Amino acid sequence: MDLSKVKMVVTDMDGTLLNSQHEVSGQFLELFQKLKERDIVFVAASGRQYQSIVDKLPSIKNDIIFIAENGGLVMQNDTELVSTPLASPAKKRVLDILDSIDDVHPVLCSKNSAFILPESREFEEKLQEYYSEYAVIDDLKAFEGEILKIALYHFENSEQFIYPFVKPLEGDLQVKVSGQNWVDVSSLDANKGFALRKVQQLHGITPKETMVFGDYNNDLEMLALADFSYAMENAHPKVKKAAKYSTLSNDDLGVEAVLEKLLA
């Protein structure tokens, strides 16, 4: 394996670069400076809100590219590179389905804020980890602003209690189990792979020169765009099957371990 070919490193955040306490390691920040010295492009790709990813990487925010909202938004130096909104008819279709699901907490995700219902107040503490900018509104269906995706949260298990209801939307919309508690619904083109392909094209970097790390199903499309694709030890079985290589868990500094080899 010739890691000297790598010109771009892309990593998911939760369950991948971040540990179980949602923290970035000091070791990663040291390794990042070495990546920067070698002109290796770094991309943080997450289902998180853009502002929330920036909050996790404040010291390097001006030196990296952000793929936010599962590919719905790509930002660099506070400049929008890619935006893929969810059409209003699709938004209504998703929200209508939610009327038949118990214990689901929907989040409308726009470029600059997120919106939840008053009855989701108990969910706010969880929301704040992923969305630093949000507001409570009385009626999500009445919201007329542009949104990038609808995130759906279940306190127990999203794949079991939410996904079966929204699975019929697949084919028309992007439906992704993006974590233990999350399902995201967005435009068909709003995925991390679509966004990463745009970033690769902008920088003239090929899949043969790309390294990607992921742990959940919303990472599958971008893993397919890298010859150096890594699944975390804690990854979903589908991710482990799709990735070409594996590394340690997010709590055991799996991303850092591979970056050490890359820089060596």
Rank of each mutant, 00 (worst) to 15 (best):
Y131E: 12
D172I: 04
Q201M: 10
D138P: 02
E144K: 14
E146H: 10
E119W: 08
V212H: 07
A135K: 15
L148C: 03
G214K: 02
Y163R: 09
L152N: 01
H203P: 02
Y163F: 15
V199T: 08
E129D: 13
L196S: 07
V183R: 00
E129M: 12
E146L: 08
F194T: 15
I150C: 04
K176M: 14
P168Q: 03
G193R: 02
S178L: 03
I116P: 01
S120W: 01
G179I: 00
P207F: 06
V136H: 08
G204L: 02
K176V: 11
L152K: 00
K176S: 14
V199E: 05
G193N: 01
E125M: 12
G171L: 05
Y163S: 09
G145T: 07
G171M: 05
G145K: 09
L140W: 05
Q200Y: 07
L152H: 00
E159G: 09
A151C: 11
D172M: 10
E156R: 13
L148T: 02
H203I: 07
D139Y: 06
G204T: 06
D172L: 09
K208W: 08
E125D: 14
I116G: 02
G145E: 15
V166N: 04
N157I: 04
F213G: 02
I147Y: 02
I162G: 00
S158C: 10
L188V: 12
R121P: 00
Q180F: 12
K167F: 11
H154Y: 08
I162T: 01
L140A: 06
E209D: 09
W182T: 04
V175D: 00
Q174F: 07
E129Y: 15
E156T: 12
V177G: 05
E119G: 05
Y130F: 15
Y163N: 11
A151Y: 04
K149H: 05
E144I: 03
F143L: 11
E144A: 14
G204A: 04
P164A: 10
V185A: 02
E125K: 15
V166S: 07
S187H: 13
T206Q: 13
L148S: 07
A142Q: 12
L152T: 00
V183H: 01
L188N: 09
V185E: 05
W182I: 02
H203W: 12
D138K: 09
L152D: 00
L202D: 10
F143W: 14
K167W: 07
L140C: 08
Q160A: 13
P168L: 09
S132M: 10
S186M: 08
H154P: 03
S178D: 05
V166M: 03
P118T: 04
I137V: 13
F165Q: 12
V183C: 06
Q200I: 08
L127R: 12
E170G: 03
S132T: 15
P207N: 08
Q160P: 00
G171P: 04
D139N: 14
A195K: 01
P164G: 10
Q160K: 15
P207I: 00
R197S: 14
L173V: 04
Y163G: 04
F143I: 06
P164T: 10
A195D: 01
T210H: 08
F194P: 01
S158W: 05
I205K: 07
E156S: 13
Y134L: 08
L188M: 11
Q180D: 13
I150W: 01
R121T: 14
I116S: 05
L140D: 04
K192S: 01
I137S: 05
R121K: 15
